[in-house]
Design a protein around this nucleic acid. Structure first.
Length: 387
DNA sequence: AAGGTGCCCAACCGCGTGTTT
DNA sequence: CAAACACGCGGTTGGGCACCT
């Protein structure tokens, strides 16, 4: 729909030097007075609004043009943390700068700069969208993968039957190299905040995969991709469940319990008692199960018979090897079943994660003080300036 | 060299608020 | 008090430019 200016044949778009000169001369001689009446009096074929904007944003004396200084930049950021998008209010604290110029500078430079620093440009606090997504992703990682991202685990995988080195994991999760590169590109320029979070979980690979400044924008895409990657991984697990590992299936339920169903490698599937539950009970693991004969658990030789349960003390630093012995098949020498250590660690990792966003949240100016090294960054100092 | 893409920023638009009639 | 008008603000647009392929 045509605007009233179009309808009336008034000029729009960039100003010519001649128009500028007419406007400046008129205002110098007469002041602007009534903006609506000004164009006609000044001999301009523009609407009053356009004249006012041209004058206030470009032609009026004292306009400072060119690159913003570091001090101006810091001031804008800090004022914005108080005032939000009150550009005109912010502009009153920066002599010679217009609200429009500050707004443009914010949207094209400062906003991106804050995002790269891991600061939410709206709240001026450390971004939580990264954390929430990472929590969601890590919280839903399959036990083996979650365990594998722990450097402790990787350093101690020698005795584990089923090993998951990071290259293997990456290939399973991201079988299409091009896709992997694409996602790494999406996820590059990770903020230091994300790096620090990810480093808690382990490896550089994970940094590459999950450390992103663009996670906010790419959440949906990444989640979808992650879901498909998980399906690939689960497919892999199901295709490889017939190896000599005793554990056929692990399921993490909503209450953080690990349910393990197993048969052994010697086709004892005809026997009863091949299901156990390992429950996260604080500093203990509760091992329970139903067994028509008996199971022993760990070096203490505790025995599960019928429907029974035992508790076994464990600690983060000393992840035990949980060993389940079947006693009902003396004819079979390979009746020892070892619950993989990664599943034990997973329970602890699950306890330690997710990292709570509140743990990294500080006051606005505390955060800025840390980031910008500004000792004056406190509320009263800046409120004083604004007032 | 030409077309595509993304960025920057001057200018525009719509709306809310204050002032005048 | 209500309507009309004027102004200012913040969000958005689109033309120009630089860079890339």
């Amino acid at each position: 729909m045509a605007s009233s200016d179009d309808m009336s044949g008034l000029k729009k778009g960039p100003w010519t030097p001649e128009e500028d000169q007419k406007l400046v001369e008129y205002i110098h001689n007469n002041g602007h007075g009534n903006w609506r009446a000004l164009p006609k009096l000044a001999g301009l074929n523009r609407c009053g609004k356009s004249c006012r904007l041209r004058w206030t944003n470009y032609l009026r004396p004292g306009i400072k043009r060119g690159k913003f200084s570091d001090d101006e930049e810091k001031l804008i950021i800090k004022l914005h943390s108080f005032l939000g998008n009150k550009w005109s209010a912010i502009a009153t604290c920066l002599p010679g700068r217009t609200d429009n110029e500050i707004k443009n500078y914010w949207n094209t430079h400062l906003r991106k700069k804050l995002l790269q620093m891991g600061i939410d440009p709206v709240t001026h606090r450390p971004r939580t969208d990264h954390i929430n997504l990472i929590n969601a992703l890590i919280g839903n990682l399959p036990p083996q993968l979650l365990a594998a991202v722990s450097s402790n685990f990787i350093n101690s995988t020698n005795n584990i039957n089923r090993q998951f080195d990071m290259n293997t994991l990456t290939n399973f999760l991201f079988p299409d190299t091009a896709q992997l590169i694409h996602h790494i590109q999406l996820l590059q320029n990770s903020s230091s905040l994300v790096h620090s979070l990810i480093s808690n979980a382990g490896t550089d690979h994970l940094n590459q995969i999950f450390g992103s400044q663009n996670l906010c924008d790419q959440n949906h895409q990444l989640q979808e991709y992650y879901n498909s990657a998980l399906m690939n991984y689960q497919q892999f697990l199901s295709n490889n469940s017939s190896d000599d590992s005793s554990i056929d299936n692990f399921v993490l339920d909503s209450s953080d319990n690990v349910h393990a169903e197993f048969t052994d490698a010697n086709n004892l599937s005809g026997k009863n008692g091949n299901a156990i539950n390992v429950t996260n009970g604080g500093d203990q693991l509760m091992v329970s199960g139903t067994c028509s004969t008996s199971l022993s658990c760990g070096n203490a030789g505790s025995v599960i018979t019928g429907s029974d349960q035992i508790l076994r003390n464990i600690s983060v630093d000393d992840v035990p090897k949980l060993e389940i012995m079947r006693h009902d098949s003396p004819e079979c020498p390979n009746n020892s079943i070892e619950l993989p250590k990664e599943n034990m660690r997973e329970i602890y990792l699950k306890q330690q994660l997710p990292i709570q966003p509140s743990s990294v949240s500080t006051s606005t100016f505390e955060a800025w003080g840390q980031i910008m090294g500004d000792e004056e960054a406190n509320d009263s100092y800046w409120r004083e300036i604004i007032e």
